[in-house]
Design a protein around this nucleic acid. Structure first.
Lengths: 187, 187
DNA sequence: GATCTTATAAACCGATCGGTCTATTAAATA
DNA sequence: TATTTAATAGACCGATCGGTTTATAAGATC
């Protein structure tokens, strides 16, 4: 069989999973072909720019997903409902802490230099969108900004510790704590 | 010149910096030799086991440093003073957020599988040591554990966001917030 | 049905990978 | 002073790296 009706969007998802497991440098082309079952021919057909283009498209994909599912709702919808949905979206996207944040992982080593704009933009927009929703819900700007930052910091930290400790419960516990923190500030 | 009076402890520090910048997979032997100015001869003399041994010794070194400077003081010294010192030690070790946590970074990709014991031990002891100090300072066990976990989660998250946003202020701001959280619980 | 495009497979490429080995020399020991 | 050990430099090795190319065949278009 020479043609398996893979679409580029399928490829993005499959390759993303490999980057998530191995990191940018750890994900060699041979590991990517082995784990995705996509040949080099297919991969370079979809991503002529190689690994760098794969990573860039994956990040753009993730970013677009968050914009649609989380940032724009926070910016445009009724703030309390959007915030409530944010916690659910976060828990399900990160599979209760069993899935890491690829954009956060890329930020830690020199991979960051290749994608600094996307990385900065993702976290900046998350914090700004949440802070904006908190302001619409009645908080002062300074308090909203601090709480939004605290939430995103907590999510990232909990993802790191969930992996580091092999603990399936810390992520959910952290989300619950952060959610209560916001709710008590909004009372 | 053929002998430069390098000691193994010097080598550990130099190589650690390369792993911190490039990650485990990104730190190739040629990059390590280029950045440390240590030849392959020297590196394999100090670390016959190659990259894996380098990383293992670096992590053991970091762990030992934290045990001496932070965990044991939390476990043995007067708790409030030890906690106060913990914040200072954390800020100076991570250079106000400009330096990442290598052990946290290793936790995120498959590098974790090589060193899972050390990684888990490091974070577990940090949380346990801090929780123990909080209990000695008068908190209930459950509250102490939750606050200790919150502190270590926040530190890791702030390190990620400091790098991701290129923001030199978020780490200090987070430490201050976490510190106040503990203090108000101890009042 | 002929042609063209899209997708796949895999042989192949030079460069770099992690690691070994030999040579050399400074310091320690006898 | 002779000998051994610790440390360094770098040539060298097979394997793997990211990437290119050629071949082939399944849809799509005409």
């Amino acid at each position: 069989m020479v043609r398996s009706v893979f679409e580029k969007s399928d490829a993005i998802g499959l390759v993303a999973e490999v980057f998530r497991e191995l990191g940018y440098e750890g994900a060699s082309m041979s590991e990517i072909t082995a784990r995705t079952k996509l040949s080099k021919g297919s991969l370079y057909h979809f991503f002529p720019g190689g690994k760098e283009e794969m990573a860039a498209e994956i990040m753009a994909n993730i970013d677009a997903w968050f914009v649609t599912e989380m940032f724009r709702p926070l910016e445009e919808d009724e703030p309390r409902a959007a915030i409530a949905r944010m916690w659910e979206t976060t828990d399900s996207y990160f599979r209760s802490g069993r899935r890491i944040c690829l954009i956060g992982a890329f930020a830690l080593d020199e991979t960051r230099d290749r994608f600094s704009g996307t990385i900065r933009g993702y976290f900046h927009r998350w914090i700004e969108a949440l802070a904006g929703a908190l302001i619409k819900a009645g908080l002062r700007g300074s308090e909203a900004k601090a709480l939004a930052e605290e939430a995103v910091v907590g999510i990232q930290g909990a993802l790191t510790l969930a992996r580091a400790l092999g603990d399936d419960t810390i992520f959910g516990r952290t989300l619950t704590r952060l959610k209560r923190g916001l709710e008590s500030a909004l009372e």
